[in-house]
Write a protein that binds this DNA or RNA. Structure first.
Lengths: 195, 195
DNA sequence: CGACTTCCGTACCGATCGGTACCGAAGTCG
DNA sequence: CGACTTCGGTACCGATCGGTACGGAAGTCG
């Protein structure tokens, strides 16, 4: 347990890996791309992170704590409408950050389809389900509190908001700019289905 | 020009290739996957279609004429609202057709990111732009006709509808069922931003 | 210092990637 | 029939895929 300490910063390396996965998806990111960006060799990567799948899992966790943390902050808003606004605004901001890849890591990977991407697909499917459940329970609470009309389908509403967020992520990845996407979010909020 | 006639149906083969690209995206579909599904060998594929990129281009054209033809039909509706409804209903139906892959070929490919997918990305970017322009000009006409309020931003509205369609496609690829997606489309239409 | 532990660069693994050269088989003409 | 043309199966190309074996260098302890 004494030995030579590792010669690179694991956190920085993980951050770099996250950016590569974000830009290129799971399958599209080769080990050469990843280790190149991380500034380490394959051997060091395997020693530090296990394998590509584990690296992806850790990079996704890092993504969740950082760029995608707007989801957690959104559900803390006092009203359901403000939750939706915070969520969509956060999606627009994160998917169009100038110093990060366009789009959403969680969406990029979900679609990629080679057979070798199966682990990533499952990981991301779970990630997205967590997000939806988060919104759903928050909206259910809003119904209980009288913030949303009784009889509102919280699950349906959560799915609706998530869907718009995904659409925004796809558009961002396609090169649509922040102003246009903010316009979409505003439109969706202006026509907030309840209230 | 006499020679031996080809021993397979090029149309059927192209259809099979389209399904593979649809399910797996451009990069995710290997030549082995493609030719396996097409029932021909690599050699025959290259002779008949050129290369993978050309095959993809032709498969996309086939997709456009078939599964994605709801877009063209949508803009023929008499009112802007009905255009949007036809578009979103078509998106739900096509992305959840039980005998076809879930999701949208045009969206699957847009996100995939390996370096070798660059040609596909450009092809699909153009494809999506065409769709947006189609809606935009249709909405602009609706403004001219007084169907939409004067001052309505047709481009923004087209982008909004496309975004919801993309979101639906992502959800479909994630396994969300047709009924839930139809609910999303209905929600979006119920809160149609103009009217 | 010297034993020990860990790091990390090189070189390599089999598998698969998209794409091609070759050639016998098979079908269409005169 | 026989010349000709195209089909399409095999075998292969170099490059790259994710992953690993090995060994020298480098750092931490007693």
């Amino acid at each position: 347990m004494t030995g030579r300490p590792r010669g690179f910063d694991a956190d920085e390396a993980l951050h770099a890996a996250m950016l590569v996965f974000w830009r290129q998806g799971y399958e599209g990111a080769s080990l050469a791309d990843l280790t190149g960006a991380m500034g380490i060799t394959k051997t060091s990567m395997y020693a530090a992170f296990g394998n590509k799948e584990e690296l992806f899992r850790k990079a996704l966790a890092r993504y969740d704590e950082g760029p995608a943390s707007y989801g957690l902050r959104a559900v803390e808003q006092p009203t359901a409408f403000e939750v939706a606004r915070a969520f969509l605004d956060g999606a627009v901001r994160t998917t169009t950050q100038p110093d990060s890849p366009a789009g959403c890591l969680g969406v990029q990977g979900s679609l990629v389809a080679g057979e070798s991407a199966e682990p990533a697909r499952e990981i991301l499917s779970e990630w997205r389900n967590n997000g939806r459940r988060l919104l759903e329970t928050r909206f259910r609470r809003a119904v209980d509190e009288g913030d949303l009309p009784a009889g509102t389908d919280a699950a349906q509403l959560a799915l609706y908001v998530m869907t718009i967020g995904f659409g925004i992520a796809v558009q961002a990845a396609s090169g649509v700019g922040r102003a246009d996407l903010q316009g979409i979010a505003d439109t969706a909020l202006r026509t907030w289905p309840v209230s």
